[in-house]
């Protein structure tokens, strides 16, 4: 607010300020590297980690690409190396827990992930407890209900995980659309949540299917867990082809409406033909001048 309020003053001294800004920016520190790690368990089948490396400089956060990291499970021994990763252009790198580590993974209910960069420890305490999630549905008197249950691995068996916050909804292009009235739900003592589907007649695919999602995000104990189920509760999506191949304002350039083409090109041709005529007048003036000289 302060910045914009002082904007007009800024212009009046703009050049000196610009020069100061140049100097100030040249003098700033190299910035701080922020490395974060996230654990994902999708549909109880694939467990993987996402590492993100970012640079915080001059109040801006930018991804660091091409940086190499080693990710370990529990200990920084070579035998416990999950993967050597390199960050992509978004500063991210994925690492799947390999099948060779199954015995180490099954040995305890809780694991620590460690991240090293060139022998230097970056993350040492990212702890995850093993958990799984399932999603189920039921329909009574045409009322659809969705239930999800979270279980954690403790003392060699799966037990209900209470107090876990999750989203329960329908998978849409931009995220998860809450299925019921609440934005999020918390599991009860039996590790369950139930929501009645309030979003009726949502568009599905060509068969009327859509995907229900139960999603735990950045939980301190369990990380990110996701369970999905396809249900035929949606309306059948019939792509609207009524405008396809028609001349409209929102079609491709080649399908512009005739009235617009006539108007636009009519104006362009009339103005530019006049201008060509005027350029021809310069040629005429030139010819007349040359005749006069001769």
């Amino acid at each position: 607010m302060k910045h914009n309020n002082s904007l007009f003053i800024f212009l009046l001294i703009s050049m000196s300020f610009s020069l100061q800004s140049v100097r100030a920016q040249e003098k700033t520190s190299p910035g701080k590297t922020i490395v974060s790690l996230r654990y994902y368990n999708a549909n109880n089948s694939v467990q993987y980690l996402v590492l993100q490396s970012q640079l915080k400089k001059e109040g801006q956060i930018t991804p660091i690409s091409g940086k190499k990291y080693d990710i370990f499970l529990d200990k920084s021994d070579p035998a416990n190396l999950i993967a050597k990763v390199t960050t992509d252009k978004n500063g991210k790198a994925n690492a799947f827990i390999p099948p060779t580590m199954k015995s180490a993974w099954d040995a305890t209910s809780q694991h620590i992930f460690m991240v090293y960069e060139g022998g230097e420890e970056i993350i040492s305490d990212y702890t995850i407890s093993k958990a799984k999630m399932s999603i189920d549905t039921s329909t009574v008197d045409s009322i659809h209900s969705i239930s999800a249950s979270v279980q954690k691995w403790e003392d060699g068996k799966w037990i209900p995980a209470a107090g876990v916050e999750m989203k329960l909804g329908i998978k849409r292009l931009g995220g998860v659309l809450p299925a019921g009235d609440e934005e999020s739900y918390t599991t009860d003592s039996s590790g369950n949540v139930t929501a009645e589907l309030k979003k009726l007649n949502m568009p599905g695919d060509s068969k009327g299917n859509y995907i229900l999602v139960a999603q735990v995000e950045d939980n301190d104990l369990f990380g990110n867990i996701l369970a999905e189920k396809v249900v035929p509760w949606g309306t059948t999506l019939q792509p609207d082809k009524s405008f396809f191949n028609k001349r409209t304002l929102w079609s491709t350039g080649i399908q512009a409406p005739f009235w617009l083409l006539f108007m636009a090109f009519g104006i362009i041709v009339s103005v530019w033909s006049t201008m060509i005529y005027l350029i021809f007048q310069i040629v005429k003036i030139k010819k007349n001048g040359l005749q006069e000289s001769a």
Partner: peptide, 16 residues
């Protein structure tokens, strides 16, 4: 350099 200031040149120029 072709401008000689003839009547014809002025006529064309003014019209343009």
């Amino acid at each position: 350099s072709f401008w000689k200031g003839t009547k014809e040149q002025f006529r064309i120029s003014n019209k343009s």
